[in-house]
Design a protein around this nucleic acid. Sequence first.
DNA 1: AAGTCGGGGGT
DNA 2: ACCCCAGACTT
Length: 423
Amino acid sequence: MSGTELEQELSQAELAAFFGRELLGWYDVVKRKLPWRINRDPYRVWVSEIMLQQTRVDTVIPYYERFMQRFPTVQALAEAPEEDVLKHWEGLGYYSRARNLQAGAREVVERYNGIVPDDAASVASLKGVGPYTAGAIMSIAFNRSEPAVDGNVMRVLSRFWLLEDDIAKPATRVKIEKLARSIIPEGRAGDFNQALMELGALVCTPKSPGCLTCPVMEHCAGRLAGREAELPIKTKAKPPRPEWRLGVVVEGSGENAGRVLVRQRPDTGLLARMWELPHVLVPKDAEKRLRSDKSEAESEREQASLADLLARMLHEEAGLLIRPLRHWTKAEHVFSHIHWHMDVFEADLPSIGAVASGDVNASEQSILAEGLGLVAEATSSYEGDKKLPSGYAWIGPEAMDTLAFPNLFLKLLQQHWGIKGRG
DNA sequence: AAGTCGGGGGT
DNA sequence: ACCCCAGACTT
């Protein structure tokens, strides 16, 4: 301490007044023009806040524009087919947000006559609306004095007030909510909450924060202590568990030439109700057996083993008989809790002619040996496109605007047809 | 309290 | 590579 300067000890109320005044003054000058800020329509605010959950502003903007164009009102969203809603969410991730949002819209139509209720408890009860989103809607759309504490706000307030609580713990969000509620300037809840987030996004960033341009640096306890870089405190997440999966691009023939076999995922769980290429999880015991060859280039022998496993598991799990042709590509995809390593094969359906003429490889024989009757039945029915296993369908590039795929499979399909188109 | 739920951009 | 993003829901 210098000794010549009197450290002004500001009270909590004085700090809050300073913080609110300076932050709002800064926000009024620099706030970004964003598509959900053209008015305060509660439905528009609602949709934006759901999309912005765990998703950056720049990523959301084009999705938001398309979504609002297609579903401009609560009624429009409530009446739409779910598939249509998912299609407009395609690539954005966390797809339960889309399903919950539509469920919420239908609830607003049925229970509130299509008007988003101006009531914190009612808004908070809507599907997909948690503590943050309820506070954001109430403050931004209705200017109610409710806190809206997201990752930005926890970071900003942790630094300004030098809070050393672990923001990964749920209890910390509750604590910071109480603080945030207590410092909302009278009559400006919406602007204040947005200003907090704007500061976190533009200035008080996770790494190398721009303290020199920060409107509240003068009394930021974290900065004054020289500790802004180590705040907020957050425990590390566990790394995603690895999974080895075998996928397949099954090419159709005859009337399905140029099409690929896809399937719809179950109603719950990961990527619920999204469409995908068929794939199977390599069991851990089989993994040890098949990974004996650790060399860079996979041998033909190993690929044949993988293809064999793929065909057999697909038959057991889905009753689907395929004929793997060749290894096509590898694909990696990382979720927050799972890391997929995929080997994708090209395949077609076994034909009766091929079986009869003996034009089959060894691995295929092991599959087909289980019953030529099955093959015959499968072949005739598949070609008619009538008796595919439940949830399976043929799709060509022209129909891609009807089914919603997660990005992983979207890219694989585009790669498949893209190469074909250029070749 | 810990796990589940996508995908991408910043550093 | 690792971190984090205008988080919510389930167990």
